[in-house]
Amino acid sequence: MTHHFDRVKNYLIDLDYNITYENAEEEVFVVEYPDAGIYNLVIAVADPILIMEQFLFELKEGKPEVFRKLLEKNRDIVHGAFALDETGTRVVFRDTLQLENIDLNEIEGSVNSLELLLSEYSDELIEFSKN
């Protein structure tokens, strides 16, 4: 376990995020922030970066117009971006931060970006998940 893991844990606690899972050996957290509609946000300490990943929806089939709209929306996202997981079927929100100088404001900014995305773009995400 690195000092980065402890520092990130302290930031998560300071931000009042609910840590639902913690594995110090793998340096992974799963957090919830129900007030923002965030559940099962995976946060991994992978020195030299912190990876934040939130599953959004499963693609039933790869429609080019869905990919295009997601890529266009990436321009508006303050922190992070839409991405596909390694299967190519699960759309996730993903953000990475440098651990060396990470602070509470950076983590909060990334989670706030996800919160804003979910509040502003939820109808479209629901539609994409149905296709």
Rank of each mutant, 00 (worst) to 15 (best):
D14S: 03
D14K: 08
I19K: 09
T20C: 07
N23P: 00
N23V: 11
E25W: 04
E25I: 15
E25R: 07
V28E: 03
F29I: 07
F29T: 05
V30F: 05
V30W: 02
E32F: 09
Y33T: 06
Y33K: 14
P34E: 08
D35M: 12
A36T: 07
I38G: 02
I38N: 05
L41F: 14
I43K: 13
V45W: 05
A46Q: 15
A46S: 15
P48V: 14
P48F: 04
L50P: 06
I51L: 15
I51T: 09
E53V: 01
L56T: 04
E58Y: 13
L59C: 09
G62A: 08
E65C: 07
E65I: 07
E65Q: 08
V66I: 15
F67N: 11
K69W: 11
K69T: 10
L70Y: 04
L70P: 04
N74P: 01
D76G: 13
V78Y: 15
L84W: 10
D85G: 02
G88N: 07
G88I: 00
R90D: 12
V91C: 00
V91S: 06
V92M: 12
L97Y: 05
L97H: 08
Q98R: 09
E100N: 10
N101T: 08
I102P: 11
D103T: 06
D103I: 00
E106D: 10
E108C: 04
E108V: 08
G109E: 03
S110D: 06
V111Y: 01
E115Y: 13
L116N: 12
L118K: 11
L118F: 01
E120A: 15
Y121K: 14
Y121I: 03
Y121H: 13
S122N: 15
